[in-house]
Amino acid sequence: MEIVITFKLTHNAMKAKRKVLFDKLSAEIIPTPREISKECGFSLLFHDSTSEDVRDYLDTNELKFSKIYLRAVVEGERKYEENN
């Protein structure tokens, strides 16, 4: 499942990205999807993971983040579901 992580600060997003890059995870930095926020910002997209694994990973590595979203394609459209 695709997981999108949002951040309050650009610095936090870049720090988390450095870590996932270092750990060679299948994740990339993307512009925060419009469906989630109109504000300019970076998010992290994990290509194939679960919200639990991503949450664990971020917590274990003390990476600050804002919200976790599950991304799925429903009838040809991307849907984002907040996961708390």
């Binding site: 650009t10 997003a13 870049m14 990205k17 990339e28 930095i29 993307i30 512009p31 970076f42």
Partner: peptide, 14 residues
Amino acid sequence: DELGQNLMKAFIYS
């Protein structure tokens, strides 16, 4: 530089 590289990465994604 790091911000700029991330912006480029995000730009290409978009």
